[in-house]
Amino acid sequence: MSLKRELPTSTISGFALSGILVLTILNILLHNIPHPVTTAGDKLLKLNASEGVANAVTTVVVYFRGFDTLGEIAVLFIASLGIGLMLHSNTQCEIKTDSNFMLKTASKILFPIIILFGIYVMIYGHLSPGGGFQGGVIIASGVLLLLISDRSFEVPHAMIVALETFAGVSYVLIGLIGLLVLDKFLGNFLSPDISDMGLLFSGGIIPIIYIIVGIKVGSEMSLIVQNLIKRDENV
């Protein structure tokens, strides 16, 4: 049975916009509730001092909530799988005009500098703002620069897939080693020294896990970017 008439979308949007008035008044009224005195974040900040890591957000993402990061990596993997299934084709499309010789040379000079910056942001993630996600996406944007400036560049498929598999498997293996040694999945079995706070080699397994996350995110983003740009026009 088919709909006899369509939904009046302008009426619905009128209701939606008039909802602003009601909800803002409710929110202003609700702000008279007093704050709780201590939240979960305060307790985690106190616990953070025993891990020896200077960046509190890194410990929360990798150590105190490490299982959520494992789930998020699974979601990224499934999204990359879906994009690869929909858009991949064996005959790549040709960009119609070839670029200038100066553009190709300049982008080949910029590419290692961008990769070096991405690796720096990844490795110093526990001492300054940054980490695995940010560094991985910076590496993928370096690959993007080469893809759009040179029409004969292809990402080496076998190496990227091998890197991604290695990173995904070793994350779970580190968690299982923590389960064997300390009776805690993703436990910190390298026993960090508190007096090392601020040095590069500190924090136990936290920088190691973040580097593994960075490798996985970087390789997945490179594959997504390549599937989006190069696609057969005639299929």
Partner: peptide, 27 residues
């Protein structure tokens, strides 16, 4: 010392939410 700091738990949650939102949008 870790005192007089903002809350790190919402920062960590929004970090993962930004990445997941972008991936699902690309799909």
């Amino acid at each position: 010392t870790f005192s007089n700091m903002n809350d790190p738990v919402p920062h960590a949650m929004i970090l993962t939410a930004i990445v997941i939102g972008m991936a699902v949008l690309a799909l």
